[in-house]
Write a protein that binds this DNA or RNA. Structure first.
Lengths: 189, 189
DNA sequence: ACTTAATGTGAGTGGGCGTTCACTCATGTA
DNA sequence: TACATGAGTGAACGCCCACTCACATTAAGT
């Protein structure tokens, strides 16, 4: 029996690249298959539909990051160190796998409502850090949903500006310190 | 000679609503014309193409906000008061014309690279405030592009979370104080 | 009342889309 | 060697898209 794992991965990698370059709707099945050097039918051996392909690429990475942030939250001791480690982790992922991160960023509006609260989720982890920090008196009382949104937005916009490449040109890693400091000031930790 | 101004406005309003509800690519010309109660050909009397329609709706509002923020920057005296007035202005627009603001927010990635630096631009106004604040010694020395991105991200994510309606449920106006305070802490004003 | 030009119409056009399926090929098993 | 099974193929299908254009309607100028 032949093994199609390598082909599935090739399709995923190629689709990711094109989805980022042109957008999901603007990328056709033929774009993907011709760029990957396979037949149209082959794609459908591995993914049920274009939507399923786009969703699988998103969910896999999104939940992985959620699990990783969860690990950080468990491991670190204080709200400060948790938040710092999480932001540095974001920066590392961005530098290590820019394509994946970019895709998550650009397609989140399409997929976010398909996520169930049970799935591992970066946003919930950041909110939990703030919640715990308040309960332990490490940071002032505040609305954890509002603060989590602001911190997320602050980080995400850095990446957004970096992706456009016009407003921010330096590497994300070199901005980690600045981002960490600003985020801590937002939650007043 | 008949006057088609009212029709053009009707098309714009209808398209805006549908673009927000379903996305630009997912909205068809027939969706727009049937929803507006006009013929397909009529739309093309007023807009050269679907792309042009989407762009006009974006650019008009984007530049208007840019001009308004410019006015605030000229009028207010200190970096603190400028930033505060700008953020409150954002909140007011959102509450007064949620549809327009939502469209700007959701379609910005599609249109942002079509903007030239000469066009009125909200981002540049915020950066200018930070730049001036540094020069006058009102806020510490910092990278104005990075800080402007962080402040913009902080505000935008509040609106994003509000639009999704799951994470933030209260009105944007009621969050203005919180957002202003957090933004000032980010730039350490 | 007549002229003129802008505005409104919608069936029609050509093209590109996602998806299917009957078929071939390659590999592991008996 | 013969068979079974999953992987790979791409022409074909039906649908729906953005856009066109020959014609009808409207309203302002004379």
């Amino acid at each position: 029996m032949p093994d199609g794992t390598a082909t599935k991965e090739l399709i995923g990698r190629t689709a990711l690249r094109l989805f980022i370059e042109k957008g999901i709707t603007e990328t056709t099945i033929r774009d993907i298959t011709s760029s990957a050097g396979i037949a149209v039918g082959t794609l459908y051996r591995h993914y049920g539909s274009k939507d399923e392909l786009a969703w699988e690429l998103f969910a896999e990475s999104y939940m992985t990051i959620g699990r990783e942030l969860h690990g950080i939250r468990i491991k670190e001791a204080t709200a400060r160190s948790k938040l710092e480690a999480m932001i540095r982790h974001f920066c590392n992922i961005f530098d290590k796998d820019t394509a994946m991160f970019t895709y998550l960023f650009l397609s989140r509006h399409r997929h976010l409502q398909k996520l169930t609260p049970r799935m591992p989720n970066p946003y919930i982890e950041i909110r939990s850090v703030i919640n715990e920090g308040i309960r332990r008196g490490e940071i002032p009382r505040q609305d954890p949903d509002v603060s989590a949104s602001m911190v997320m937005g602050l980080i995400m916009q850095m990446i957004d500006s970096r992706l456009l490449g016009q407003r921010i040109k330096q590497s994300i890693a070199s901005l980690a310190d600045t981002t960490v400091a600003a985020s801590l000031r937002v939650v007043e930790a």
